Simulated scan of single mutants.
Amino acid sequence: MDRRIFLKGATAFGCSLAAHPLTTTLTMAAVPGEARLVVIILRGAMDGLDVVRPVGDSGFAALRPTLSEGTLGLGGQFGLHPALGPLMPLWAAGELGFAHAVSTPYRDKRSHFDGQDVLEAGTGLDVPVPAVRDGWLNRMIQAMPGVQAETAYAIGREALPVLEGAADVRSWSPDVALQLSEQNRLLLDRIYHDDPLFRDAGAEAITLAAETGAAASGGGPRADVEHLIDFAAGRLRGETRIAAFSQTGWDTHRAQGRALPKALDLLAASILRLKTQLGPVWGQTTVLAMTEFGRTVRENGTGGTDHGTGGVMLIAGGAVRGGRVMGRWPGIGETELYEGRDLMPTADVRSYAAWAMRGLYGLDRGLLEGSVFQGLDMGDDPGLLL
Rank of each mutant, 00 (worst) to 15 (best):
89 P>A: 10
371 S>P: 06
61 A>T: 12
122 G>C: 07
251 D>S: 10
306 D>R: 09
71 T>V: 15
264 L>W: 06
239 E>R: 13
364 D>T: 01
256 Q>E: 12
193 H>R: 14
249 G>L: 14
285 T>G: 02
336 E>G: 08
383 G>C: 05
132 V>K: 03
67 L>R: 09
352 Y>P: 03
232 A>Q: 03
94 G>A: 01
332 I>Q: 09
158 E>P: 10
158 E>I: 14
159 A>W: 11
64 R>T: 06
145 P>W: 05
54 P>T: 14
267 L>Q: 07
164 E>T: 15
321 R>L: 02
161 P>E: 10
177 A>G: 14
291 T>C: 08
4 R>D: 07
188 L>D: 08
79 G>K: 06
70 G>P: 03
229 I>G: 00
229 I>H: 01
374 Q>K: 13
63 L>Y: 13
46 M>N: 03
107 R>T: 14
297 V>Q: 05
342 D>P: 07
298 R>G: 11
106 Y>D: 04
361 Y>V: 01
28 M>W: 02
294 G>D: 04
296 T>E: 14
74 L>A: 00
109 K>L: 15
188 L>V: 15
50 D>L: 15
222 R>M: 15
245 F>D: 00
166 A>P: 12
256 Q>K: 05
67 L>F: 06
74 L>H: 02
162 V>Y: 07
365 R>K: 15
92 A>Q: 13
75 G>K: 03
337 L>G: 01
350 R>Y: 15
302 T>I: 11
179 Q>H: 09
51 V>N: 01
79 G>M: 04
60 F>H: 10
91 W>D: 02
385 L>A: 07
327 G>D: 00
43 R>K: 14
337 L>H: 02
31 V>L: 12
215 A>I: 15
294 G>E: 05
55 V>E: 13
124 G>W: 01
134 D>I: 08
362 G>H: 02
55 V>D: 12
126 D>K: 05
18 A>W: 13
304 G>S: 03
266 L>G: 06
185 R>Y: 04
105 P>V: 05
189 D>W: 01
242 I>H: 10
115 G>S: 06
189 D>I: 01
79 G>L: 08
37 L>P: 04
128 P>H: 02
237 R>S: 11
272 L>V: 04
386 L>N: 15
277 Q>G: 08
175 D>G: 13
26 L>C: 11
119 L>T: 07
280 P>R: 14
247 Q>I: 09
262 K>A: 14
44 G>A: 10
73 G>N: 11
229 I>C: 00
140 M>V: 08
256 Q>M: 04
260 L>H: 09
386 L>A: 15
10 A>C: 11
237 R>L: 13
225 V>D: 04
142 Q>F: 06
220 G>I: 07
307 H>N: 11
14 G>W: 06
165 G>D: 09
35 A>H: 01
127 V>T: 12
163 L>P: 04
108 D>K: 13
290 M>T: 11
66 T>S: 14
372 V>T: 08
152 A>V: 08
258 R>C: 08
314 L>S: 04
248 T>H: 14
362 G>R: 08
284 Q>Y: 02
213 G>M: 06
149 A>N: 10
25 T>M: 00
78 F>C: 00
249 G>C: 11
182 E>H: 09
290 M>S: 10
156 G>H: 10
333 G>M: 10
103 S>E: 09
145 P>V: 04
56 G>F: 13
137 L>K: 03
337 L>K: 12
288 L>H: 02
218 G>C: 09
20 H>L: 06
3 R>V: 14
84 L>G: 00
373 F>G: 00
159 A>C: 05
33 G>H: 08
60 F>E: 00
